[in-house]
Structure formats: structure tokens, C-alpha cells
């Protein structure tokens, strides 16, 4: 894989992103909804007020004109402003970013760190007790929706045992060590809920990928040469089983930015997911567009990274 190839892929990403932005904007502009819906239900706000607001924010312009306005501003680095809070979109996103990265990132990390060893060990001894337990937990993990597991944890740890708070606070008043303790206490449940959900499917994929490889002859050969079991697993099996795992992790990474709508809602984590959902529900196009556009960029980026990693994991893969 040549540097020229990498460069070409990066250049190709620009028109891709542009094309995606056209589709995104069209979908958002056509999707039903209204930033000023609540005004309409108030009998004391004349209809003219709302019509004036729509006109002022250009909501009644044709879609292509709105898109051109958005694109021009974006090219100048202006993300636009939210109709609902009248704040700049980039400020809104930046406010949510640290919490999102911390909570969602930690849960992804947890999922990967737990799922890969569990999946590998399970596949090394398929249908052993360990494998069965891991599988059953995984089935529970992805057959129960997050709204349910989240609530279950709240019931047990916040209400019965009163160990953990279930309202996430973005400005903890404590300092020093106490701050870390409080931060971890309020993050445990959202991280666990998300980590379980993500990790559950990852365990199954890792197990399957390892099973595909572990039966191949070269593994037997390596074993017969007297190489230790651990070394066989790590050096010979895992590396070759990594292609599907890399694919999945690359699929998950953008979510670290996009947030997790339901989990954020349950624990009141002020992340990007909750910003996104409230903006979508009020049809606050500039905010939704800002978030999804960055998200799309990350999707493309991680797809590219995955492709590059394939070449590294299996040098025979050639991209032409």
C-alpha cells in the first residue's frame, strides 16, 4: 500500500462528504417537525409571530437555497446557529463533547477490553463452561434494550441499595480526589449499560472470528512445533481473526462522538446524543446538520483507517 494510495483515498473523502451533506440536508429539511411548535399551542401568541419567526430564520425558503446558504457559511467555518437556543452550533457541540467522549468513550473501551479476551478465550475452548457463561451473558446483553437495563440498574443501585446517584451532574461542586470519586460514581451505570450492550455483540463476533481461524492447519502446525498455547493464541490466532474485529470497532468508533441517545436520556448525561435528539424533535436543522456532518466525517475516516489496517493485518490484501 503506497502513500499515493492513502493520499488518493483522503482526497476522495472530500467529494464523498460533500455528497453525504447534500443527502443529509435534504432529509432533514423534508422531515416533518417545527422549531416553534410549542408557541402554536399557546392561544395568547398570535399566529403572525410564528410566521414571522419562520420567515426570519429562512425556514420557508426552498431546500436548495437553504442548503447553499448552509454550505457557504460552512466553507467559511460558520456552523450556523440553533433556532431554538439562538446559540452558535459549534459552541453547543463543544459544550457537550467532553462528557460524551468521557462516558461513551469509556464504555466503548470497556466493551473492547472485555469482549476481545472473553471472545478469544471462549473460542479457544468452545462449549466449555466459561464459553457458555460468556455466551449467555452476551445474549442477555443484546436481547434486553438499554432503556430496560438502565432502569434495572437504577432500581437496584440507586433505589434499593442507594449506592449510586442516577442523575448525572455536569458541574460537580467537589474538588480533588472527591471530584474523581463523584465523577466515577455517577458514570458507572451509564458506562456499564452501554458497555454491556456493545460488548455483548462484540464477544459473539470475536468468538466467531477466532473459531474460524483456530481450526486452520497452520494453528495445529504451530502447536505441534511446541509453541506455548498462549503464544499460539496471541501470535497466530488473534492476529488473523482481527479483520472482522477491526471492522466492527471501526463501525463503533464514530458513535463515541455521536452519543447514545437512550442511555443519555435515562441518566440525564448531557452528551451529544441528547443534544441531537432534542434538536431533531424540534427540527432544529443547523444543530442536527452540524452533529451529523461531523459524524459522517468520522464514519468515512474510520472506514479508511479500517481499510489501511486490513492491509497491515493481511499484507496480501491489495487495494488498487
Amino acid at each position: 500500500m503506497s502513500p499515493a494510495y492513502v493520499l488518493r483515498r483522503i482526497l476522495l473523502a472530500i467529494p464523498s462528504l460533500f455528497g453525504i451533506s447534500v443527502v443529509l440536508f435534504t432529509v432533514l429539511a423534508l422531515a416533518p417537525g417545527d422549531p416553534f411548535g410549542e408557541l402554536m399551542t399557546n392561544p395568547n401568541v398570535p399566529a403572525s409571530v410564528q410566521l414571522a419567526l419562520r420567515a426570519k430564520f429562512g425556514l420557508d425558503d426552498p431546500v436548495y437555497i437553504r442548503y447553499v446558504h448552509w454550505l457557504m457559511a460552512m466553507l467559511h467555518g460558520d456552523w450556523g446557529f440553533s433556532f431554538v437556543s439562538r446559540m452558535n452550533v459549534d459552541i453547543l457541540i463543544m459544550q457537550r463533547l467532553p462528557v460524551t467522549l468521557a462516558v461513551i468513550g469509556a464504555s466503548q473501551l470497556l466493551a473492547v477490553l472485555v469482549a476481545i479476551p472473553v471472545g478469544v478465550l471462549g473460542a479457544a475452548r468452545p462449549y466449555s463452561l466459561f464459553d457458555q457463561i460468556a455466551n449467555t451473558l452476551a445474549f442477555i446483553g443484546f436481547s434486553l434494550p438499554t432503556f430496560f437495563t438502565g432502569l434495572l440498574l437504577i432500581m437496584v443501585f440507586s433505589i434499593r441499595l442507594e449506592w449510586l446517584p442516577f442523575v448525572f451532574q455536569s458541574d460537580l461542586s467537589s474538588t480533588g480526589w472527591q471530584w474523581w470519586v463523584d465523577e466515577i460514581r455517577q458514570s458507572i451505570m451509564p458506562i456499564a449499560v452501554l458497555g454491556l450492550f456493545q460488548g455483548a455483540s462484540l464477544v459473539r463476533f470475536v468468538r466467531s472470528a477466532v473459531l474460524d481461524v483456530i481450526r486452520l492447519d497452520y494453528v495445529t502446525t504451530a502447536r505441534s512445533k511446541g509453541i506455548g498455547e498462549r503464544r499460539v493464541l496471541v501470535r497466530h490466532v488473534v492476529r488473523n481473526a482481527l479483520i472482522p474485529v477491526v471492522t466492527l470497532v471501526a463501525l463503533q468508533m464514530p458513535v463515541v462522538f455521536g452519543g447514545a441517545i437512550i442511555t443519555e436520556q435515562i441518566f440525564r448525561v448531557p452528551g451529544i446524543g441528547s443534544l441531537l435528539i432534542s434538536s431533531i424533535l424540534s427540527n432544529d436543522t443547523p444543530v442536527v446538520m452540524g452533529v451529523t456532518f461531523v459524524f459522517a466525517g468520522l464514519v468515512i475516516l474510520f472506514n479508511l483507517i479500517a481499510d489501511l489496517l486490513y492491509g497491515f493485518l493481511d499484507p496480501r490484501i491489495a487495494f488498487r
Binding site: V23, A31, P254, I277, L281, V299, I300, N303
Partner: peptide
Amino acid sequence: TDLFLSLPQLPLLLL
């Protein structure tokens, strides 16, 4: 594929 991955599902569903 990237396009479908980046589309926010809720507005798409409403549409």
C-alpha cells in the same frame, strides 16, 4: 454504506 451509517435515523424515519 457510509451515507447510510451517517444518516440520523429519527428524521429519516419521520420522513
